[in-house]
Design a protein around this nucleic acid. Structure first.
Length: 305
RNA sequence: GCUGGGGUAGCUCAGUCGGUAGAGCAGGGGACUGAAAAUCCCCGUGUCGGGAGUUCAAUUCUCUCCCCCAGCA
């Protein structure tokens, strides 16, 4: 069985991935599939920088704004959904263009995940509770005895990874590093990664400008309406940068100025983490974000289209 | 003008019973295998407002000057 061709557009937030994707879609007859963990949520298209409805009419789009804010998404669910979206696009004769910023989701999709079953919420909750009462040191020490290999890789303060490792062990009776070891790293698609490169100094003013544009475009009203429908500050859909700050403002816990400056700082820090993540990926071909023609030439050459 | 509180890292501040100083945030670097726009790790020399005095030694005590804040005039 031959692998499907897919183009992945990567890079930090705010570099113009949407524009590049639309350019490539036009040239090759493509369909855009989202791999951004926050743009899947309904009700906040502006704040999460989803493609506008105008942009979405230019070619078919998948996986934008379809989840309810109370629903949680994770790499496994995403990978599953994206796989079928790719299938649909191919069936329609379109070149799938994966666009987004969640590196983990892209890896999960391209290389697959270990077949770890879902963790029952009872188990998750009890481990969370133990972390709260006993602390990271104690649970890390516990992990050290059951899975020294994985424990060595993570820090006692890393609550998320420690509790994940323990809950997987409790659920499956197997240790996380053994699950990971059985994975085969074969790609599941014939993929080409195109990176839009921009360093932080250049990106920062663009991010600030984008926040201003979002606010001018009605971001507060959008968030207010969405929050009224789902008035839970901790809903999974509200964990995106921008949402959290605007909710604080809406709930009168912050001035708009405070919300704005926090929003920018966190966006910038996020962009930096993305840069770090993508920087180490040798598969990525880096481009000037504006040079869509050069990206297209590489796509043409690589896939002989 | 008077009284009180301040002037310490880019910002907000802690501290030194006298032996030249440290947190949070910001910033820089990094990790990342089912919460990932998450979670986490590493990196801190700065005329301790200026000047003078006491002292072996002052950012720390004293005096003085400058600046900020609050209150009183």
């Amino acid at each position: 069985m031959t692998l499907e061709d897919v183009v992945c557009i990567v890079g930090p937030t705010g570099t113009g991935k949407t524009a590049a994707a639309l350019g490539l879609a036009e040239r090759f007859g493509g369909g855009v599939i989202n791999y951004d963990s926050r743009q899947v949520y309904r009700g906040v298209p502006l704040v999460t920088a989803q493609p506008t409805s105008e942009e979405q009419t230019q070619c078919p789009h998948w996986l934008y704004g379809f989840m309810e804010p109370v629903q949680a998404i994770d790499a496994g669910l995403f990978s599953h959904l994206a796989e079928s979206a790719i299938g649909e696009a191919v069936q329609r004769g379109l070149l799938p263009l994966l666009v987004g910023g969640t590196g983990l989701y892209l890896d999960a999709l391209l290389y697959g995940l270990a077949a770890i079953p879902d963790v029952p919420s009872m188990i998750r909750q009890s481990i969370q509770a133990r972390y709260d009462t006993m602390g990271g040191e104690a649970l890390h020490a516990e992990l050290q005895t059951i899975d020294p290999q994985y424990a060595a890789k993570i820090h006692p303060n890393d609550r998320q990874r420690i509790t994940r490792a323990l809950e997987v062990f409790e659920t499956t009776g197997r240790v996380l590093s053994s699950w990971h070891a059985e994975q085969n790293p074969q790609p599941r698609f014939n993929h080409l990664k195109i990176g839009l490169h921009m360093d932080l100094d250049e990106l920062t003013p663009r991010l600030a400008l984008r926040i201003d544009m979002m606010l001018k475009g009605g971001a507060v009203a959008e968030m207010k309406a969405a929050y009224q429908k789902t008035p839970m500050p901790n809903a999974p859909g509200w964990t995106g940068i921008g949402c959290m700050e605007l909710i604080e403002y809406i709930r009168d816990r912050m001035t708009l100025e405070q919300a704005k400056s926090l929003w920018l700082r966190r966006t910038r820090a996020y962009a930096k983490r993305q840069l770090t993540w993508f920087k180490r990926d040798p598969e990525i071909h880096w481009f000037d974000p504006a040079d869509v023609a050069a990206m297209g030439d590489l796509v043409a050459k690589y896939f002989k289209r």
